[in-house]
């Protein structure tokens, strides 16, 4: 099976979701519903998104790296899936499930890469296990964004945050944070003075600080 076929095979599965893989707000809502009333349907939905997200994560990573083996993809996906399954009940913030799964993927990927590079030189299983535990602990404590896989989830969160703004702020904010235009350019395009544009951006920034969708990603930035 080629990469493209595997992408199609993943799409077959992801097509059963009622929302996009990067719609973190819907994912977190589905997880909250599952926690409130853990029905088989709710569990299946959460598990399905989790699996699809993890598999997509590793497909992107494997796409970049030529030397990874196909069998490794399946095992690392399974390993990460098990880790999420085991760890999610201990998750303190239920409204950040999507962000947390992404972090688990990143940390597990580091472990996978480190372990893999050592396998080629060291043949000591005990040493590897110790190292794995150590690195897992270190990795758990660190969060960061990786645009190779996070570009979509972050973009959707930003788009949602802009949609929630009052209509008079939306356009100017989109121009500044999405189109990345200067104050002067925005002023020219909207007919507003630069001072007004600045005032609008100030208001938007204040609201962004309070936005729960964006706030769920803050822990990625330290």
């Amino acid at each position: 099976m080629s990469y493209r076929l595997d992408l199609h095979s993943l799409d077959d599965l992801a097509a059963r979701l009622p929302f996009h893989l990067d719609s973190s707000a819907e994912v977190n809502e589905a997880y909250s519903i599952y926690l409130r009333s853990p029905s088989p349907e709710a569990a299946r939905l959460v598990d399905l998104w989790t699996y699809c997200f993890i598999r997509r994560y590793y497909l992107i990573k494997f796409l970049k790296e030529h030397s990874f083996q196909a069998g490794e993809l399946e095992s690392v996906v399974e390993q990460t899936y098990r880790k999420v399954e085991k760890g999610r009940m201990l998750l303190k913030q239920n409204d950040r499930y999507a962000q947390w799964v992404s972090v688990v993927c990143k940390n597990n990927f580091i472990n996978f890469v480190t372990r893999r590079s050592l396998v080629t030189t060291v043949d000591d299983v005990e040493l590897l296990d110790d190292l794995d535990v150590l690195q897992s602990e270190e990795a758990e404590s660190s969060e960061w964004s990786d645009l190779e896989v996070d570009a979509g989830i972050l973009y959707v969160a930003l788009a949602r945050a802009i949609e929630k703004l009052p209509s008079f702020l939306r356009n100017v904010t989109r121009m500044r944070f999405v189109e990345q235009l200067s104050y002067e350019e925005i002023g020219r395009m909207t007919g507003l003075s630069v001072a007004t544009v600045r005032a609008y951006i100030h208001k938007a920034c204040t609201r962004f600080r309070e936005d729960p969708g964006l706030g769920a990603f803050k822990s990625w930035y330290r």
Partner: peptide, 27 residues
């Protein structure tokens, strides 16, 4: 795009099979 012809992942099970196997859900 060109990696379509690569058979690196040829031993992989389709995502649905794998998901059903590890999650226990039948979909």
């Amino acid at each position: 795009q060109e990696r379509e012809s690569m058979d690196e992942l040829s031993v992989l099970r389709p995502a649905i099979d794998h998901f059903e196997a590890i999650s226990g859900h039948v979909i």
